[in-house]
């Protein structure tokens, strides 16, 4: 139970970073932290005490596996996270080339 709470605290750190920081790169970092926390939370819910990784063995008849379904879903989510980060960084780099700043207040002031 305390692990779930710690995971939520990690998510809250990312959320705070996303809300308060004015720098675009800091906002991307905040989103990344939130993504890590969500991925970890799913894997935590699938864990079983004294269980093995979900890989079958020819000789040993293991019956106690951790839940493979969240692992399969999060495998997808990690790769999508990389693509989303790349897209955000591309947009941030373009904004920097145009306005020479990452500060969103400056960018908003310079519009038009």
């Amino acid at each position: 139970m305390s692990l779930y709470i710690l995971c939520t605290v990690l998510f809250a750190v990312g959320l705070y970073c996303l809300l308060v920081k004015k720098n675009l790169v800091k906002k991307i970092i905040g989103l990344g932290i939130m993504e890590y926390a969500i991925n970890l939370f799913f894997i935590l819910t699938g864990y079983r005490t004294a269980a093995e990784a979900p890989i079958l063995d020819r000789e040993l008849a293991i019956t106690n596996f951790v839940d493979p379904l969240p692992q399969a879903l999060i495998l997808t989510s990690i790769v999508i996270g990389l693509a989303v980060t790349a897209l955000m960084v591309a947009i941030a780099v373009r904004l920097y080339e145009k306005y020479r700043t990452f500060d969103i207040n400056e960018i908003r002031r310079l519009r038009g």
Binding site: I43, I55, Q71, I78
Partner: peptide, 10 residues
């Protein structure tokens, strides 16, 4: 947490 596939991908 016994998720080796995820560790490699991550």
């Amino acid at each position: 947490l016994r998720a080796p596939d995820l560790a490699i991908t991550q």
